[in-house]
Design a binder for these strands. Structure first.
Length: 924
RNA sequence: GCAGGGGUUACCGAGUGGUCAAAGGUGCCAGGUUCAGGGCCUGGUCGGUUAGUCCGUUCGAGAGUUCGAAUCUCUUCCCCUGCACCA
């Protein structure tokens, strides 16, 4: 049992921290400190972060974005802005429903995660079987966590994306998009579960496998009264086809498509797949592959070359791959080559693709690696080597694309044969087999008449680039990714048949998809708290047209809403994790551009990296997720704020670990103690150490403004927190009677965005009655900044370190330390040396100045190697004053007498060794 | 494959032409602290050398530009992230 006092102290400190944080949280709430309304005489600043998805509690990783956001908000408040920071909850889509269902099903996996990682008992879990209950439980949990973190949020504006009133707003958005011709309908391939009859994403599959779709080209070889279909990813090799491969054992069908009115020969498996892809096939005949092979008279006709090709048997052809029939290109496909050899056929085929180092790469590699037959596992390796090299470096030798790169020829051939009706598009899952959670085998479905947002629209893209160009992007280096994403966007399916959210306005039974209802919701915050007296039925097209666009006739009950929107919009800063750069954030830009006039386009985006836990990614399976509220209980909110935000550059991942948090905590304790002690000495004057400290502080505050604006949070923390505590520690050694009142008066305000709770407490201890949160950011006092003072202090630190080194080297403690200050002429000589960097020139210049040439020679030789990096030394007088001021300090440090002597007035031989910025030191 | 980011001394991580053997943190070593342990403080932590110094080698690999390169150019190897209809 451990019952000693130190642990009790620890507990006391945590309890004290919690008490301080709780106290200020309460005061902010009582005074409604962060509820923001339009103020005519104040400039506004409006920022938001991506709202959370409440299907689990938040963890310290989530806290990074919100803490960065809150620091930003609090800084802008100190700069005198009327700041709005709202928050809401995104509940759209299927994951919440899926989670609730899994809880209802008593899914062991989920319950274990709840119990072990989130600390949610099975009894509690049992009450979360309905999506709404789940949402309410976790959103409350998340909101509490945000309050505990001290985020300066205006909670009056909170909403959920399944709220009726919000739905009206989103429907208005979609009507606007449609008016602008940006909602279109078309076909769309999608991973599909045949059993559930529903589209399937990564979280719906076993093992969370992400289904990948690949577009194959099914080439049509005329055969009898129909076509043999062979699916390929390499349509450009059609010029080298020698035969058709058919697996004799597999079941094949002859089927007629009522879509194309054509008859196809394909595997039975392919028939099922093609029917999901809208070919409407009807089986005319069903048979084994050998039937096709045995009919020696019937040939398949190559649609491009017109060659008549034989049908051969190949056991390696799989019936669930593509159409179950493949075209044979032995000059480039290793399997085809070896299969022909296995049949004893030696063909004199021609080369159609040029690659360096090979004529027939497939054949040559097979011979080189000694592959015996088509069952050799080495074949797969050869296939990937050949394909990679041909696609990357190959050049076409035949056909209309002769001389073009293979990668280009693939696309052009495909386009051409599709247009000429010589091939069909055939979709396939490229990473199959994938299974739905229900157990069924996934397939590809082509949905007809799907609804899309037409992000492909080129005018829209152009305007979005224009908006982006004017935006501030932090960090700037991510800008390219936005440009890339905007260019790359294609049409995006925007309606689903299942999920929470907003009913799709143009077709019954559909719901607006999750990434499409969260693009301009920042506009909704500006009025969300003013809608209590409105029925959602009043929230018509005209309603939103007037409030958000200023169109149409004003009604007097709409006035306040309109004014609120005008006051707060546009959005000044959008914060988010870096993972949203390629989806949500470009959508956010594009939708603003589509719907709002240019003056309401967003101003800036700030993105941040993730939080790692002890160097590893946080994940449910690793069980290393630290829930935020647990972390707050353990370390306190201000410590967590520092820990998640200060460890790395904004854009890179940061690591959370105990020692970092402990480090922050101990520094907080040091500062708390200091404030306690030093606030009483405010009547004392300023001696050299205080002046030094204030010089350092003012210089930092000067730099801090710029860093705050650019959100260089790590650098800020380093400078105004870590370095400041280091400075304070030095100061305490130097100072006889600490007097930090003036220092803290400025510093507490400057640091308050980082540690608002402690800052409020300190501010109060310093005798202030108002919230520090609404103070003015401290002004730099240039008159306090002194290079000479800081340089002098550095000199003292250097001398201190040198004495320690010498003392250690000679192995004794001195009884007297003599410090010799270099003469003024040496400083003049340094200035000369900066102008004349060649030795002889320097000597001549020194001679002209009538310097003592014997000494000049010696010093000159010494400094030649560092001629490019000579220090800007203080004057002799300044050096003397600095060191003389530290006589007491150094004497105390080394327990001996200290003498500071001008070189000229000394008779010690070592005195001559003194250099500017480097006094000679003698220990006796 | 395409696009973006990155490889720094035991680890994490600063560092964009000289002031860099390279900040800071962690770990480790030594010493201190009315110090059980932990904590805290001081110093050390590439090799050699020295009254506070100087010399050699180092920043994925190779080549180049320069009086001078972790930093600029080229080549090459490796790692991470994204490529959607899913929040």
């Amino acid at each position: 049992m451990n019952t000693d006092t130190t642990d009790v102290d620890q507990v006391d400190k945590v309890a004290r921290t919690n008490a301080i944080e709780g106290k200020w949280r309460k005061k902010w709430a009582e005074k409604k400190a962060f509820e923001s309304d339009p103020e005519k005489n104040m400039e506004k600043y409006y920022l938001t972060a991506a709202f959370p998805y409440p299907n689990s509690p938040q963890h310290i990783g989530h806290a990074r974005t919100y803490t960065t956001l809150d620091i930003h908000a609090r800084y802008m408040r100190l700069k005198g802005y009327n700041v709005l920071l709202p928050m809401a909850f995104h509940v759209t889509g299927t994951p919440i429903i899926a989670m609730a269902q899994r809880i209802a099903d008593k899914d062991e996996e989920v319950l274990k995660v709840f119990e072990n990682i989130y600390g949610i008992s099975r009894q509690t879990a049992a009450t979360l079987t309905r999506p709404e209950d789940l949402v309410m439980h976790f959103s409350k949990e998340i909101e509490e966590g945000m309050r505990e973190m001290g985020y300066s949020i205006d909670w009056r504006r909170k909403f959920y994306t399944f709220d009726k009133k919000f739905n009206r707003f989103i429907q208005w958005q979609f009507h606007k998009l449609k008016e602008h011709g940006l909602i279109v309908q078309g076909e769309h391939p999608i991973a599909w579960c045949p059993k559930d009859n529903q589209a399937v994403g990564a979280h719906d599959t076993k093992g969370d496998a992400d289904p990948e779709l690949k577009e194959f080209t099914a080439v049509k070889f005329a055969y009898g009264d129909g076509y043999i279909l062979t699916a390929t990813l390499r349509p450009e090799t059609i010029y080298g086809v020698t035969n058709i491969w058919i697996n004799p054992i597999n079941i094949h069908v002859k089927a007629k498509s009522s879509k194309t009115n054509e008859v196809y020969y394909i595997s039975k498996n392919a028939y099922e797949k093609m029917n999901y892809q809208n070919f409407d096939l009807e089986i005319l005949e069903e048979f084994k592959g050998e039937k096709l092979i045995s009919d020696k008279n019937k040939k398949a006709k190559n649609p491009i070359t017109g060659e008549e090709l034989p049908l051969y048997a190949a056991p390696y052809v799989k019936d669930d791959e593509g159409t179950g029939i493949v075209m044979s290109v032995p000059s480039h496909a290793p399997y085809d080559h070896i299969a022909l050899l296995d049949m004893g056929i030696h063909l004199n085929y021609s080369q159609i693709i040029q690659v360096d180092g090979y004529k027939f790469m497939a054949k040559e590699l097979i011979e080189k690696m000694g592959v015996k037959d088509q069952n050799d596992p080495k074949l797969d390796d050869i296939v990937s080597q050949t394909y990679k090299k041909e696609i990357l470096t190959g050049v076409m030798l035949v056909g209309p694309y002769k001389g073009e790169k293979v990668s280009v020829a693939i696309e052009k051939t495909k386009k051409s044969i599709l247009e000429n009706n010589q091939a069909l598009v055939f979709w396939e899952l490229s990473n199959k087999p994938i299974y739905c959670r229900c157990g069924a085998h996934l397939t590809v479905n082509i949905l007809g008449k799907q609804w899309f947002i037409d992000y492909e629209n080129s005018t829209w893209k152009q305007n979005s680039h224009k908006c982006l160009d004017k935006m501030l992007i932090v960090p700037e280096k991510t800008r390219k990714e936005y440009d890339y994403a905007i260019d790359w966007f294609k049409q995006k399916a925007c309606a689903r048949s299942k999920g929470l959210g907003t009913p799709f306005p143009f077709e019954d039974g559909l719901v607006i998809e999750a990434l499409s209802d969260s693009t301009i919701y920042m506009a909704f915050y500006t009025i969300a708290h003013l809608l209590k007296d409105f029925d959602e039925k009043e929230m018509t097209e005209e309603f939103f047209d007037y409030i958000l666009l200023g169109k149409g006739k004003e009604k007097k009950e709409w006035k306040e809403l309109r004014e609120s929107f005008i006051y707060w919009y546009p959005l000044d800063a959008r914060h988010s994790g870096a993972d949203l750069v390629r989806n949500h954030l470009p959508f956010f830009i594009m939708n603003h551009v589509a719907i709002f006039p240019e003056k309401n386009w967003p101003k800036s985006i700030v993105t941040n990296g993730f939080v790692l836990m002890d160097g590893a990614k946080m994940s449910k399976s690793m069980g290393n997720i630290l829930p935020l509220r647990k972390a707050i209980r353990e370390y306190g909110a201000d410590v967590i704020r520092f820990s998640v935000v200060c460890g790395a550059d904004l854009s890179s991942d940061t690591d959370f670990n105990k020692s970092v948090a402990d480090g922050v905590k101990s520094r907080l304790v040091i500062i708390s103690d200091l404030i306690e002690k030093s606030r009483k000495n405010s009547k004392l004057g300023h001696t050299r150490p205080e002046k030094w400290l204030l010089s350092r502080l003012n210089r930092k505050i000067k730099g801090a403004e710029d860093r705050y604006q650019k959100l260089e949070i790590r650098q800020l923390a380093l400078e105004i927190f870590y370095e400041v505590t280091t400075d304070l520690q030095w100061y305490l050694k130097r100072s006889e009677k600490p007097n930090l009142h003036d220092f803290f008066k400025k510093w507490v305000v400057a640091i308050s965005p980082f540690m608002p709770h402690h800052a409020e407490e300190y501010w109060h201890l310093l005798g202030n009655k108002e919230f520090v949160s609404f103070e003015k950011f401290p002004k730099t006092d240039e008159s306090h900044i002194s290079d000479a003072l800081e340089h002098g202090e550095e000199l003292i630190q250097k001398v201190h370190a040198d004495v320690e080194k010498i003392s250690a080297l000679i192995g004794k403690k001195p009884s007297v330390i003599k410090i010799f200050i270099a003469s003024e002429w040496k400083r003049e000589f340094y200035k000369l040396a900066k102008k004349h960097q060649k030795f002889d020139e320097l000597m001549r210049a020194a001679a002209a100045e009538k310097m003592p040439m014997a000494d000049v020679q010696r010093v000159g030789k010494q400094i030649m190697k560092n001629i490019h990096s000579l220090p800007d030394a203080l004057s002799e007088k300044e050096e003397f004053e600095a060191l003389n001021d530290a006589v007491g300090f150094l004497g105390k440090e080394f327990s001996c007498n200290i003498e500071v002597i001008h070189e000229d007035k000394a008779d010690h031989p070592k005195a001559k060794a003194a250099l500017p910025d480097k006094p000679a030191i003698v220990l006796e």
